[in-house]
């Protein structure tokens, strides 16, 4: 009986350890591993002040400006609520596109622009052939055009 009790004590200790480990890991992730902040958080000054952090969101369509004869680019990161202008000097990843996800590391200047030192493309989890993507895009635009007419009819 004694050996059995001791085994259960070990299992109990293991489960307690499990709880502590879970709490520690979750806490560590929560405080240190927030990979990026959204433009809404940045504008609300929830992002760390005075040290580099990452900003993530969509590259606003039509906002990308390349300075001729240099690798300098400007674009706007948006979460469709707030917008943060970003300036960057360097090569952009292949998947960097307007209307697609982006994560940029850098610092926020007092004038509200974000000076990026690294720009990463964040893509979504959809996989399909280009023809299917084109067809979906066409269907989406068709819907966008027909939506107002639908709304107007009572």
């Amino acid at each position: 009986m004694k050996a059995r009790h001791r085994r259960f004590a070990w299992i109990g200790a293991g489960i307690a350890l499990l709880g502590v480990a879970a709490a520690l890991v979750l806490n560590a992730f929560q405080s240190n591993l927030v990979f990026f902040f959204t433009p809404t958080q940045v504008v609300a000054q929830e992002a760390p002040q005075g040290r580099p952090f990452r900003i993530g969101g969509m590259v606003e369509t039509g906002s990308l400006v390349r300075v001729p004869n240099t690798v300098d680019v400007k674009f706007v990161v948006t979460d469709s609520v707030k917008r943060v202008p970003v300036v960057y000097s360097g090569l952009l990843p292949d998947l960097f596109k307007e209307g697609k996800g982006v994560v940029a590391q850098g610092t926020l200047r007092t004038d509200g622009t974000f000076h990026a030192t690294e720009v990463l493309a964040k893509h979504d989890e959809n996989y399909m052939p280009p023809e299917a993507a084109a067809a979906m895009e066409a269907a989406h635009q068709h819907k966008a055009i027909s939506m107002p007419t639908l709304k107007e009819t009572p």
Binding site: L33, L92, P93, D94, L95, F96, V103, V119, A121, H123
Partner: peptide, 16 residues
């Protein structure tokens, strides 16, 4: 590397 633009990032999925 070819998609995001980096081999490694300390994000939650990769770190865990």
């Amino acid at each position: 590397r070819p998609t995001w633009g980096t081999y490694w990032a300390w994000d939650a999925r990769m770190t865990s």
